[in-house]
């Protein structure tokens, strides 16, 4: 059944059971997001960018975790929505090593896109929270332990899409979140045996990464 909802005074129709973020994106209404993909059963709700205000609710809510309801009235551009989005974005930038010029993601990078949308630059309001060595040398860390891919922890925004896509492609995920808190990274731990890997036949994780934190070794 199709439901009628009102987004910023624009009437749209959305299928029952769909999440609000997807409904907006399908109707050409952009809401910043990093950790969302269409086929995810349970939203991760981890990037904290897709906030919207819904009439009847006191505070902004992440739209990826809301199921559409008939007659729902949503605002995507209010001061409190923008405050949270900009704050989350600046926090992410404070962990992101900027070298757009040489970065393979340049011009297709989600962070660049969001910065433009939110009308903020790529310089974080917060002091950079990068390892001392990175700040001193101006060279970012690289995890080269995987035989085919390189991983750049100082680029990564921990959206988890690589893990998700690997699991949906292969049934199991050959990469994982490891460690905890601010130290959280994506890890390929233990998969050194090239013969067991899909190898360069599958580039799903490389292709889905919004910031090119995983790249093909042969290209870098």
């Amino acid at each position: 059944m199709m439901l009628n909802i009102l987004i910023d005074d624009k009437k749209i129709e959305a299928e029952e059971g769909k999440n609000l973020l997807q409904a907006c994106l399908d109707n050409g209404i952009y809401i910043p997001n990093l950790c969302h993909v269409k086929d995810m059963a349970h939203p991760q709700a981890s990037c904290r960018l897709c906030f919207v205000e819904i009439e009847g609710e006191k505070k902004p809510v992440p739209s990826c975790s809301v199921t559409v309801r008939e007659g729902m009235r949503v605002k995507t551009d209010t001061p409190s929505v923008r405050r949270l989005q900009r704050s989350a974005f600046h926090l992410l930038l404070s962990r992101h090593f900027i070298e757009c010029k040489v970065c393979p993601a340049n011009r297709k990078c989600e962070l660049q896109k969001i910065a433009k949308f939110l009308k903020v630059g790529l310089k974080s309001n917060y002091p950079l929270l990068l390892p001392k060595a990175v700040l001193e040398t101006g060279k970012q860390e690289t995890d080269e332990s995987h035989p085919i891919f390189n991983y750049y922890p100082n680029r990564c925004v921990l959206c988890g899409l690589c893990i998700h896509v690997c699991r949906t492609t292969h049934g199991i995920a050959l990469l994982t979140f490891a460690k905890r808190g601010i130290d959280t990274v994506i890890s390929f731990y233990g998969e050194e045996d090239v013969s067991r890997l899909p190898g360069d036949k599958c580039l799903a994780c490389v292709n889905i990464c919004p910031v090119s934190a995983i790249t093909l070794k042969s290209l870098s």
Partner: peptide, 21 residues
Amino acid sequence: TQKESCGKCTFCRIGTCHLLG
């Protein structure tokens, strides 16, 4: 809390670090 943050969401993972800083 910063040490115990699970690291999943942006505000808790990075925000608490800046507060601590």
